[in-house]
Design a protein around this nucleic acid. Structure first.
Lengths: 143, 143
DNA sequence: TTAGTTAGTTAGTCAAACTAATTATATGCG
DNA sequence: CGCATATAATTAGTTTGACTAACTAACTAA
């Protein structure tokens, strides 16, 4: 049976994830923040304070790109740069209370959109979705 | 039980989808094409030839932005513009053979990455993932 | 027929990506 | 130890991709 062939499953999950996130994306406007800035902020909130290079790597951009983004976020009071005690070249980039609040707002808007739709599913379907979420995380983390 | 609450499920699926696609994204470099161009090309391949405004809407950008992107893609020989017979103002944007091949290459690279990981799952897990894909499409299409 | 709408393009601006080069600090080897 | 090399972040300059405003051409309906 072709239906559970790894390639076909990868294909369908890939496409479905893209469509779902694309639909959710329309909610981002509520923050007034650009997608790259919102995304960087989100990584900081969930991953905790980190160096500029670590953040750049997480976001798959170069250090200069992230340097500029973080500079802008700092100017808006959404993140703060602290010196790294152990390494004088390095930074610790932290989310401020204001930054956390704004990120949370955008996140809520996205989730509200998705939640309204998830709520229409049956209990069994929600369980199915939840189990798949764990699997997708596993795929993402896979070596 | 909180575990199948709609908000929690939405939250976990949202995060998992983001992480999975972020992991897959590293493969896009193989095409030499930028993300917006690759994405537009992909919409054309799967959605078939369409007008500029339809493509712009699908990609959630404005008409001028898409006009420039399509112009670039045309210059690279990846798409072709044809006049709309019924409406002389309109265009039909078609993918060329070359465009289709390049898009397919990028798609394969992404999917190869995911497929390798999906293949490590059990048959039951793949089935679970596949069922969830259908549900995510439903969420994306939901009004 | 003419007023209003829709399709697409052009012009101009800004944000976000890159590479190359700079500065400062760490690290490691002879 | 001292110098070469590597690493962290920034600065400078360029390109790409996003927007709005303004335009032309063509369609639609009063």
């Amino acid at each position: 049976m072709a239906k559970d062939d790894a390639l076909d499953v990868a294909e369908r999950v890939h496409k479905a994830a893209i469509r779902m996130l694309r639909a959710a994306r329309v909610a981002d406007a509520t923050t007034g923040l650009s997608a790259p800035k919102l995304s960087a902020l989100s990584v900081l909130v969930f991953g905790g304070a980190m160096s500029l290079s670590a953040l750049a790597k997480a976001e798959q951009v170069t250090a200069p790109t992230m340097s500029k983004l973080v500079g802008d976020l700092e100017a808006e009071g959404l993140v703060a740069k602290r010196a790294d005690k152990a390494d004088k070249r390095g930074l610790r980039i932290e989310v401020t209370t204001k930054g956390r609040a704004l990120m949370e707002k955008g996140r809520q808007a996205r989730l509200a959109l998705l939640t309204a739709r998830v709520a229409k599913l049956s209990r069994a379907e929600r369980a199915q979705l939840d189990a798949a979420a764990a699997l997708m995380l596993k795929l993402a983390a896979s070596p």
